[in-house]
Nucleic acid binder design. Sequence first.
DNA 1: GCAAGACTGGAACGGATCGTTCCGCTCTGC
DNA 2: GCAGAGCGGAACGATCCGTTCCAGTCTTGC
Lengths: 212, 212
Amino acid sequence: MTKPLSGRKAQAARNDEVILEAARAVFLDDPGAPIAAVAERAGVGISALYRRYPSKEELLRKLCTDGLAAYIAAAQAAVDDLDAGRDAWAAFASFMRRVVDAGSTSLTIRLAGTFTPNEQLYRDARHGDTLNNELIRRVREAGALRDDIEVADVGLILEQIASVRLGDDQRTAQLRHRYLALVLEALRHPGHGDLPGPPPRPEELAARWSTP
Amino acid sequence: MTKPLSGRKAQAARNDEVILEAARAVFLDDPGAPIAAVAERAGVGISALYRRYPSKEELLRKLCTDGLAAYIAAAQAAVDDLDAGRDAWAAFASFMRRVVDAGSTSLTIRLAGTFTPNEQLYRDARHGDTLNNELIRRVREAGALRDDIEVADVGLILEQIASVRLGDDQRTAQLRHRYLALVLEALRHPGHGDLPGPPPRPEELAARWSTP
DNA sequence: GCAAGACTGGAACGGATCGTTCCGCTCTGC
DNA sequence: GCAGAGCGGAACGATCCGTTCCAGTCTTGC
């Protein structure tokens, strides 16, 4: 498993991964964590971080971009499922479970506002948004989703599930799936009553990203 | 409406309320907010705060105690409803709506770990826990609640709803009720399938309160 | 072998933040 | 009219954190 343990380059390459993973874990646990905490968790010095990323903000952007990519992959997979004629509800439920597993929502949301997005991030966000809209529209048109649920609702529901943090990572994931299963039941067509209040408007969600 | 506007004592009495309300609003928005932000929001100087509370921690404890009291009142009211023979599901739903409205969960949860609890707080917490257990047990025994939902589940669900924060306070409240309505549908007996994973154990929830 | 330099650990620095104290002022209640 | 309760906000000291810097280690091309 351990590649050629020696070699400066091998260590550097391993550090690349170790640092990213440590950063993900640390900032997931506390979005305002100091950069020294990441270094400590990764078992490296601070220089090892600054050699790779010119600043903390750049590291955060990298994490966020990765999280968004995972989200996009999940959405794309679900759309592909629909294209392949798979059951719409199954495709949607898989999508939700996959997003919850990836923890990408947690990261993306918890990091929102702590750095200024760059162009790439905006493009990814738009791409994810488009996929999202298509996915929800098609699932609803297939009659699998409540009529009064909109795209923004799904985003907020994912946020709520991401807010569950209890015990270690594994237990947290387990509990998140527990509440996802619960809410999925309520999301499935048809609902039993009207939902109060209008769903979130897209601008309301976007406001998260401005750093005032 | 405005009581005798003049009078040092009258102003002091008004400041009591103004400060508490400002503190609630500020710390709800950002649990780590500086105490100066509370003073600014209240429109008073910092001295006015320190005249009333010897330290920031004491102020936080006061807020948390009040929030817990609101929670207990809601639970007691629901138990009273049951005693009066009211429909179990209606009593439970009212309880949930009232707790969401009070925003007490938000405050209590967001403040957990930012100060060390005192004896009074522990007693209140135990009292709330007892009421909680009685309420859920009786609602479930009345056949209104899913069998696989436990007390700790309800707590975590309230936390999830409290994590919704979007736009101003009014809009946030509206959206919280939207998702409460959704999850209530899923909570109602009977469920459609098994919920994955065991519910949270009481110790898991309690761990929130230790400041490591 | 050996020297240049890539890479690293961690101490040091400077700026920002925040809880708390303190001082001078105002206005009241007697 | 005056003692002092109550107040605003500047000042202080502690803490924290991002970033820089330096001294040491190991690799690799020659």
